[in-house]
């Protein structure tokens, strides 16, 4: 079954259709779970990439997030948004990755692989922003990704991250301050050249 959608970046729309897909997936309908994957794979992949800075890891973590979601599908409560629930699983995968891997070594390896895998050349700006994001504490990075890139409110991000809204606000504030310092220095260095 091939379904076509219009995917809005950062838009988390919960529908009756998705709840039906969850029920059907629990009954063993592979196509229903594939429909959920098709709907959210871009969103989860973007989050994974921004959290890790690695294309290969983003792909692995995206797959792992959906596999975990399938395993835990019976624990999903229809009162919560499916997208929030999925975000939380994906971010937990990314935070666990952070602890497991030697990030710097991976980025060096990834640099060589990236040249072959991207169909579009990565601009210097994109690389600088991603490097700046990777300098943030992982929880601050998650907060800034959810609020700035995916357009979640602080309250929504708090539900995804499992913390208070105040904590999200502080993390976003601290992350922005640090990003301004890093990107401001880079901009200044670029202007001086």
């Amino acid at each position: 079954m091939r379904l076509s959608y219009r995917v809005k970046q950062g838009c988390m729309v919960e529908t009756e259709e998705e709840r039906d897909w969850v029920k059907q997936s629990l009954q063993g309908d592979d196509a229903a779970f594939a429909a959920l994957v098709l709907r959210y794979q871009h969103m989860i992949y973007s989050v994974a990439y921004r959290m890790t800075g690695s294309l290969a890891e983003a792909e692995d973590l995206t797959q792992e997030a959906f596999v975990q979601a399938f395993r835990q599908l019976s624990s999903y409560r229809a009162e919560a948004r499916f997208s929030s629930w999925l975000y939380r699983i994906a971010l937990n995968q990314c935070l666990n990755w952070q602890k497991r891997r030697q990030r710097i070594e991976m980025l060096h390896t990834e640099w060589g692989r990236r040249q072959e895998m991207t169909s579009e050349p990565e601009t210097q700006q994109t690389r600088l922003v991603q490097e700046a994001l990777l300098k943030l504490n992982p929880k601050q990075r998650a907060a800034i990704i959810l609020t700035t890139y995916d357009g979640l409110s602080h309250a929504q991000a708090a539900r995804v991250l499992g913390c208070s809204e105040t904590t999200v606000s502080w993390r976003v504030f601290a992350a922005r301050a640090k990003l301004k310092r890093i990107l401001g220095r880079q901009q200044k260095a670029k202007n001086d050249e």
Partner: peptide, 16 residues
Amino acid sequence: NDELDRVLKSTAAPQR
């Protein structure tokens, strides 16, 4: 903050 948002949002995840 607005300038920072513009810089951050101007960068998309690499396309596949």
